[in-house]
Design a protein around this nucleic acid. Sequence first.
DNA 1: CGGCAGATTGATTGGGGTCAAGGGCTGTGG
DNA 2: CCACAGCCCTTGACCCCAATCAATCTGCCG
Lengths: 250, 250
Amino acid sequence: MTEALQLHLGAFARLTDDDRARLARIAARHVREIGPRRDLVREGEKPRAMILILDGWAATYKQLRDGRRQITSFLIPGDPGDANVFVLARLDHSIASITPVRYAELSQADFDALVVESPSIARALWGHELATASIHREWVLNVGQRTAFERIAHLVCELFWKLEAVGLTQGFRCDWPLTQADIAEATGLTSVHVNRTLQQMRREGLIEIAGRKLAILNLARLQCVASFNPDYLHLGGGAADLGSSSRQGQ
Amino acid sequence: MTEALQLHLGAFARLTDDDRARLARIAARHVREIGPRRDLVREGEKPRAMILILDGWAATYKQLRDGRRQITSFLIPGDPGDANVFVLARLDHSIASITPVRYAELSQADFDALVVESPSIARALWGHELATASIHREWVLNVGQRTAFERIAHLVCELFWKLEAVGLTQGFRCDWPLTQADIAEATGLTSVHVNRTLQQMRREGLIEIAGRKLAILNLARLQCVASFNPDYLHLGGGAADLGSSSRQGQ
DNA sequence: CGGCAGATTGATTGGGGTCAAGGGCTGTGG
DNA sequence: CCACAGCCCTTGACCCCAATCAATCTGCCG
């Protein structure tokens, strides 16, 4: 199931059938599986391979010596971990699974071959890297300026749009394997406060989380209170139009 | 004076004299100057060119509709703005000068030529992009988990190391054109609280800021209280060693 | 039927925000 | 060379959002 991967990268460059086949072939090469809540790679390690998430959710995180942890992004099916591997000496962050995860490992040789053989794929990977940086900037804004309520609303919007882009939503519902502690680590809050804030969002008829599933009851209003503008996700061609229309919602 | 640029990119790939000449030539092509506190490019614009800072300080920032502003990175001489230009449809952030700034604009044609003619430069730009993403992750950690005191100490360390890498320090001193409001916008604090925190850092004999100049009085201790580990800056070969030694300081 | 992870609740605290008023430096114009 | 303006820094008093601490509750799994 590399469909998500295709969809994801397809947002950044027009891929030919040939490209798609190539991607599928390489992604099928070194597939691994791992249980929930385990590290795929660890900060400080010498990078061995680039990771492509095929199935399940993961998170990248950084940690201070005293235990404070900050999740810096979530990885869903189709997301490449970053290409640190091929230029930088050491990994600056860890990646951990949230659910059980199936993922592919691209060796440097695989990566080089892919990039040389297909300029489109190279361009798509480049685009993905830029989009990732953009998302990181939005997270800095999120954690630096927004209130708890806005932060969580924003995170929910972001993940919903990302899932939507790879076909993993059903109407206004989707999987939601994150614990309140996960949300806390991603937003720089405590799980206690996340709990109270989620209750408030439920009371206001914005969202509903139950049984590892999320339902968005009022997307327009959720995006409005989060001052969420999906442009920063750079989700393919349609994004610009959707973005401008959602801006009016504010 | 493209020396800083050479030094900066040289950290990510071995550049030949030829590469250096090429860089210097292109950077000299479209040079512009701009006064302090003005926007170089604005969020939402269609990107026209990639920016290379030749002289002066700038900041990238994002803004919410109600005026809350978050600085997401500082640009010093030698820093390229990111290469959004060539893949993404719209800029997701603005860039503003802090001091008067001299900068070069690379058109897409310039960029393509550079990348095609020199794989080393392409690799260096790629490396810079990855390092930028890494710095963003550290900022998320900074704003999400650290206390005000730690955040500011961390920011000071980061800028000092970056300046050092391009030869813009004198011993433990360097230029410091940032106002307390700038620091506040970069750390997600208010300028009032930045003020009080800086006073505390001065009282504790860590740093001294006066007349747009910074003096670091005790770098080891400053890095320690900030839990600063320079690895994430990916500053060329030496960084790994320096990083591990500074880790012992903790 | 325990055991455990995750969700929930209450009471209390505290870091940092807000508001408002001065103080100082520096550049500019007279 | 002085005077004023504007930006920045500084200070004080007060407030509030979110953290902390400490149970309790719930649902799931073996």
